[in-house]
């Protein structure tokens, strides 16, 4: 291996690693706030990538229909609850949020897609179609079980992953997609060719991380999420409802997932079920951080990216084996640094 290849692999590894880092942060966030181990994170990546790919071809993405379908399901659940509690005055808001808005977005996409709008508009459209699925999934699958054990929530996550993967197949088909890069620029830096696309990915990831940091430090909702993660009872007592915190954290996770998908779409071909592996690589990073520390999780994810880049050079067939086996030394390390038997929740 010469320096050129080594540097190229570093660039490649950091590019993928930046995306895994974003996902790792979202996973840590969701776990801290809701105790949900968010396996379906990867599906949001795939949905984001495939929705953008559809728009670039001038086709109405399946996500628009999916959003309406899921919206209808949420509306049914919410209406049933409102009627049970005798809160009929909530009905108009429910209809507006879960039926009228999805219908409006579907119409918008229908109208806009064939006109192939500018990339920025396509990205925005992708986000408004995919991100609302996050809080809706929380409402349908997790909110009724908010007090369940981490284990039950994890099984729910796997079930949601199953359902979302299957739905991905229905709405996007089995074909993979790859979008054109945001930038074809290449810069020569010594022996290294820096591609515009990797700068885009790293820059966008960094910007997103900074934005998240500002959100958590300086906004009341960011503080409310932190408060919920630190002390759920205390948060309820100041009026932060776990359901609100849950929906908000799922919204952020869906946003991060969809953006990651948009960033990764020009780098690799994405299929309806590709998200799972991408998401899990974020997980390996998050586990390095013990599902608790944001900076360690991000660093772990970068490590996963680098490991993957080098593994695919040295032993490409065993790339996945190597990446996922990384978790074993990590767990060994953690099991020797953690010293407690905790009483399970149930």
């Amino acid at each position: 291996m010469n320096t050129e290849i080594a540097l190229f692999l570093i660039q490649d590894g950091l590019t993928n690693g930046a995306i895994y880092a974003l996902l790792a942060l979202a996973l840590v966030l969701v776990f801290a706030v809701t105790r949900v181990i968010f396996i379906p994170q990867g599906e949001f990546v795939a949905y984001g990538a495939l929705t953008l790919a559809g728009l670039q071809l001038g086709k109405l993405p399946g996500t628009a229909w999916l959003l309406l379908g899921v919206g209808l399901a949420v509306a049914v659940v919410e209406l049933a609850q409102a009627l049970r509690l005798g809160l009929a005055r909530r009905i108009p808001a429910i209809l507006f949020k879960f039926i009228i808005i999805p219908v409006a977005l579907l119409s918008l996409a229908w109208w806009a897609a064939p006109q192939k709008p500018a990339l920025t508009l396509q990205i925005l459209l992708t986000l408004v179609l995919v991100v609302p699925l996050g809080p809706m999934v929380y409402r349908l699958a997790y909110q009724p079980l908010a007090n369940a054990s981490v284990l039950v929530l994890l099984i729910i996550s796997v079930a949601v992953h199953f359902a979302m993967t299957g739905l991905g197949l229905v709405f996007f088909g089995a074909e993979g997609s790859r979008t054109p890069p945001f930038s074809d620029a290449q810069w020569k830096l010594g022996v290294l060719n820096i591609s515009g696309q990797s700068l885009w990915v790293m820059g966008a990831s960094l910007a997103l991380i900074v934005a998240l940091l500002l959100f958590f430090e300086h906004t009341i909702y960011g503080k409310a999420l932190r408060a919920t993660a630190i002390n759920r009872v205390g948060a309820r007592l100041v009026g932060v409802s776990p359901a609100m915190a849950g929906k908000l954290s799922f919204t952020l996770a869906a946003l991060i997932g969809a953006l990651s998908g948009i960033l990764v779409a020009p780098i690799t071909t994405i299929y309806y079920d590709s998200g799972f592996l991408v998401g899990l690589k974020g997980f390996v990073g998050a586990i390095v951080g013990g599902l608790m520390s944001y900076p360690i999780a991000a660093a772990g994810a970068l490590l996963v990216g680098l490991l993957e880049a080098y593994a695919s050079f040295w032993a490409s067939a065993y790339k996945e084996v190597i990446v996922f086996t990384l978790i074993i030394p990590v767990l060994i390390w953690r099991s020797f640094t953690t010293h407690h038997i905790e009483e399970e929740e149930e």
Binding site: K223, R226, A227, I230, N231, V233, G234, A235, L237
Partner: peptide, 9 residues
Amino acid sequence: ERRELFAAM
């Protein structure tokens, strides 16, 4: 009774 403050804030 347990105050339930946000200790890390």
